[in-house]
Simulated assay, not measured.
Amino acid sequence: MLSTGPQLRLLLLLSCVTLVLLFQVTNAKRDFKSACSTCQQITDNFNKGFDRTAKQNFGGGNTAWEERKLSKYETSEIRLMEIVEGLCDSSSFECNRMLEEHEELFETWWFKRKTKHPDLHKWFCIETIKVCCPKGTFGPDCNACVGGSDRPCHGNGMCDGDGTRGGDGKCSCDHAYKGEFCLDCIDGYFNEVRNDTFSLCTECHTSCKTCTSGATNQDCDECKEGWEEDDQEACVDVNECSTEPSPCTEDQYCLNTDGSYSCKACDKVCAGCTGAGPDNCQACASGYQDTEGNCTDIDECSQPESVCTEEHQECVNTKGSYVCICSSGYEEQDGQCVQTVQPEKEDESEASETTTSPHGEL
């Protein structure tokens, strides 16, 4: 029997080996998908380059002579090289590595296979270097995705590894669908049409948490929160605003919505309210008074008893309040209105000048 020390070391070693293997498997799956993506990019760029050079020639002065003597530009090695030069960005390591490893295959296809195999992606990526699979298939052997290669995941999701030599073929279902085959509906949706190969999930009525047969509020199996079943077994809105006490604070009013509610601020003239505006106040805020059902501003400055009691003060009314200011010719100093000091006027004296005749008296 092993001692505790060797046992622990063995367990740690096994754990490390397992983690390494998992890491390698994960990376391998990622690499398969990445390799196919790179190959797709290369063949897409090749097709773009092929279109770009469709109307070009050798660029010399006598094109007819060149084509007669050097073969046509359309099928020439020069055109091939011009296309190949534009397949990868200089910064794309994976693209340039794949191109460098398989550059001779482009020559083979260009001169010997193009006529019989016009689809470069299929010939190069799928059939020759085998980093991709046909659409609707996945994995090393290009097995059909769940639901078949024509409609992976029965048309309601994405097959993991679709079109690559990686992935496990499991479905990632679109919104509204769930299950291994993406034929079942999530909560809030029901199968409007369903058979072994096709499913159409339609949204339930907004009041339903679940439903199975229709899109009305009478088709709910269970009502959503904020809704309740009535006497006709239909889900109807719960009016949270009718409950006592109100779910809102004193300076807010409750606004009911389908399946919920919201709290809105009362008008600033109100001290509590039942709705928006100054005509829905439960009471008027300080500085306001009820005038025929509306809360209106109190003009404190027009009251019989003056609210500004200090000497040389004037009252200025504001919404919901008032302010006391010093009268004209006065300014506030230490809480008192004192007369403004006027700058002394300089005495204006007219300088009298003795005017004498510029000419002497004869």
Rank of each mutant, 00 (worst) to 15 (best):
N256Y: 05
L8N: 10
P140H: 05
Y261W: 09
C308S: 03
P358M: 12
E233L: 14
Y253M: 04
N57F: 05
C281P: 04
M158F: 13
E101N: 13
R165F: 00
L19S: 06
S306Y: 08
G136Q: 01
L87V: 07
A215K: 11
L14D: 01
C201R: 07
A234F: 03
Y322I: 00
F111K: 11
R68Q: 14
N280H: 15
E222Y: 11
C95W: 07
P118L: 05
K55S: 14
P118I: 03
S260K: 07
N217C: 10
N280G: 05
C254H: 07
F190G: 00
K72V: 09
E192V: 08
N143S: 14
C263V: 03
R113T: 07
T128V: 03
E74Y: 06
D258V: 09
S71D: 11
V316S: 11
L2H: 12
A234D: 09
T291C: 07
R194D: 06
Q339L: 06
Q289S: 12
E305L: 09
P343T: 10
L19W: 01
A271N: 11
V131S: 03
I126W: 05
K224L: 11
C145W: 04
P245F: 00
N294M: 11
E85F: 12
V341Y: 07
G163L: 02
C241F: 02
G329R: 03
G214A: 05
S34F: 11
T115Q: 14
D347R: 12
Q40F: 12
K264N: 15
K114I: 10
G293I: 03
E332N: 07
G320K: 00
A276M: 10
